[in-house]
Design a protein around this nucleic acid. Structure first.
Lengths: 243, 243
DNA sequence: GCTCGCTCTTGATCTGAGTCAAGCGAGACC
DNA sequence: GGTCTCGCTTGACTCAGATCAAGAGCGAGC
């Protein structure tokens, strides 16, 4: 990031100037010229909750950066059982490089903003800049780490620990700006109960009961079903099983 | 693979000639010269079941290819609960590129043979050959896909479906040579019951009961607790939940 | 040969989360 | 205002898999 400080801001395409993807996301690997080229083909869009963004089994012809909101990656069993296998937050990259169908589908969890570009462009840029492939590789490794954390959670944690872990995961990923190092946070749940259940391998009813339990134990406060306040992250972590 | 047919075999280092990693693994990205350079620093080793290969939280200074056997990647909770988050079969690459600690530890599940080399060498080769990074990227994406399949399994499948899926996973990964397109296979279980339990998020007793159930349903035959025969892969798939 | 330790199986019982069912509150639409 | 739908909660009951307990099989070491 500091490496780019010397570049005058006017070299940066207007649409990219305020975008997180340029700092923490894959676009950070691009030169101003490449960024310009890319930005000429990008399309910003905003979609409603539960809009399907990628279908499993369907090869994709566009990639996106998540600019705002939360995207659910999910897998479906033939009989309808569903598991959310990952959540993507801004500025994550969305879409499987190298064409292989990844077998997951992607849906907006809440109001989501995307910055999309055709597959062809990304492929060109990858070829001329190994640093871009490196960024994508790093994102893949990061997602792999998260997937494995989730496996531990799904396989070995109790319902209560799962819900606590989920809240902590949200706190970790959302607005890293508002990180004032305090032990207390407040935020909007981007997922509805049904999504949380599909993420944690539980049922809606169990999510509801566990949240009530956390509320009665004064570990969280809940307003309007969606606004969560965690008075002490520390205390919440104590019931997450993570130490 | 066909691209290398024209290279005379004598260009290939002796230790690499019969190695799967040269074909399906990461070494396939290297030129004969690079392979030679690498092979001068590699060390072949063979380790007993349950030997620790990588410790979580400990940065690694060597990478390996799995040449024979099965390696368990696992995560541990502070109170001792354990989850196996991945299994690596020959010729998988073992070790996290770019130094970051991945938080998993690796143990031999059965008798394992490794081909190891110092981190420095891999880093040098990655710098001079983007194709190598590409191979590593592809392996990361493959592992990510597998991790997500496992998440669906851990979160949504019944004990019976989990055990059936596990056997199918083994059939998929083991000796792709012996794949004579028949519907019946026979193989040795590389994991003991306790490992299977940690992999599937169940207990030893449940594994045992589910195997007995499969045996009584004539879906598998079991000899000496370790030798499995599946008379019809098709029928086993029918109880795996995968369609 | 005998014992020890390890892996695995089987049975009896318990329990955490699922299932089924009812009801509430809030926004959307008529 | 009334009714529908959707998201959520709560209670009663059920059940799949965990837990607890006993014992069998088998190879290693003495």
């Amino acid at each position: 990031m500091s490496k780019r400080k010397d570049i005058h801001n006017s070299d940066i395409p207007v649409v990219c100037r305020a975008c997180e993807a340029r700092h923490r996301g894959v676009c950070g690997a691009l030169t101003p010229e490449q960024l310009l080229k890319l930005s000429q083909h990008t399309k910003l869009s905003s979609v409603k909750p539960d809009t399907t963004l990628l279908e499993a089994e369907t090869p994709i012809d566009a990639y996106s950066n998540v600019v705002r909101g939360v995207v659910k990656l999910s897998k479906l069993m033939p009989d309808g059982r569903q598991q959310i296998v990952g959540l993507q937050f801004a500025p994550d990259f969305l879409g499987r490089p190298f064409q292989r169908d990844s077998g997951v589908s992607a849906e907006a969890a809440d109001q989501v903003a995307l910055c999309s570009f055709p597959r062809r462009i990304l492929e060109q840029l990858t070829e001329e800049s190994p640093e871009l492939e490196h960024k994508l590789h790093e994102q893949a490794l990061r997602e792999l780490d998260e997937a494995r954390d989730l496996m531990l959670m799904l396989g070995r944690k109790t319902a209560g620990e799962k819900v606590a872990s989920f809240l902590l995961l949200l706190i970790d990923h959302m607005d890293p700006e508002g990180n004032d190092d305090t032990d207390t946070v407040s935020f909007e749940l981007p997922l509805k109960r049904a999504d949380i259940a599909d993420f944690l391998g539980l049922t809606i009813e169990t999510i509801s009961r566990q949240l009530t339990k956390l509320r009665k134990a004064k570990l969280v406060e809940i307003e309007n079903n969606r606004t969560i306040t965690v008075p002490s992250i520390e205390r919440l972590r104590n019931v997450s099983g993570d130490f």
